[in-house]
Design a protein around this nucleic acid. Structure first.
Length: 299
RNA sequence: ACUUUUAUUGAUA
């Protein structure tokens, strides 16, 4: 099964769902019964392709073959519904999950929290956090990152920074409503800021025109020895471009190359956008040629 | 005991 699952995963990742379905049938014929993981892979692939109702139908297929969907299965479809804005269906599925005695875990909650954050319902997100704790689940770094992004996108960058600071200090998420309720800060959640945390907050700061603070965080991240990736670089580069600090932005581009963090086409797009918005079309052209020379295909 | 396959977070548009 594992061998087949690996291939299934490969197909699913490429969005080749029809082939994945066929492979599943072949497995049955070859007397290798698809297992829980096989179905989860297929469902995930379908969700990524927006085939939500197909994914949903697989649930029944699974049950018919005597395989009970697990938390991963439900979370996968839930995420698909949430990302697709199908709130009603998401609620239904959550109910079904609970009715069947399948417990949500931290990932499930993270999906739900992200969903309400994207709708701008921050207080709802805090309520979910509360529920999460009541169920004995610890918010993890991803939970914090989701909250941080939600706060940033809703004009509450300073609250986001508070969360990040408390992550730094205690290595745990002290996330309760701002009115300092000292929730479970003692628990051994390993919940330190990572590159995503920093990138998210830097982006929030840049979008508010607080470039200097973002720069400060960037330096802090380097000092901490975190592995700065191309998105972190791109984030600050975008901030620099938008504030007209193109030369600094290009300095960072070079730094990326020397640090073994190769710029992607996204990075180049940001810089070309920056050049174009300043009317420097010639330099933008040059950069277009340059990225190709570096083996980066423009889109 | 350990080990292979599945779900959630960040940039440009």
């Amino acid at each position: 099964v594992v061998s087949y699952n690996i291939i299934l995963g490969g197909l699913a990742k490429l969005g080749r769902i029809t082939e994945a379905r066929k492979l599943l049938e072949e497995m049955v014929e070859a007397n290798i019964e698809p297992d829980l993981v096989s179905y989860n892979i297929l469902i995930h692939g379908m969700c990524r392709e927006g085939m939500l109702s197909d994914a949903r139908r697989i649930l029944n297929t699974m049950r018919a073959s005597g395989i009970e969907p697990d938390t991963v299965t439900y979370s996968t479809i839930l995420d698909g519904y949430c990302k697709g804005g199908k709130v009603v269906q998401a609620r239904q599925l959550l109910g079904e999950m609970l009715r069947r005695g399948c417990f949500p875990n931290a990932v499930t909650f993270n999906i739900l929290i992200q969903s309400v954050c994207k709708e701008g319902r921050i207080s709802e997100a805090y309520k979910l956090l509360q529920k999460m704790r009541e169920r004995g689940l610890c918010p993890d770094t991803i939970t914090c990152n989701i909250m941080i992004q939600g706060l940033c996108k809703n004009g509450r960058v300073d609250n986001a920074i508070q969360i990040m600071d408390s992550m730094c200090l205690q290595g745990s998420a002290t996330i309760g409503e701002d009115e300092g309720s000292m929730t479970n800060a003692s628990l051994s959640d390993r919940c330190f800021p990572d590159v995503v945390t920093y990138s998210t907050v830097m982006d929030g700061l840049c979008k508010e025109g607080r470039l200097d603070e973002a720069k400060g965080l960037f330096v802090e991240m380097l000092e901490k020895g975190l592995e700065v990736d191309e998105i972190a670089y791109s984030t600050i580069i975008d901030g620099l471009c938008k504030q007209g600090e193109l030369n600094v932005a290009f300095k960072l581009l070079n730094e990326m190359q020397t640090r073994g963090c190769p710029p992607t086409k996204g990075t180049y797009n940001i810089l070309m956008q920056g050049l174009c918005s300043k009317g420097k079309i010639d330099r933008a052209y040059k950069l277009l040629e340059y990225m190709q020379k570096k083996g980066c295909a423009p889109d």
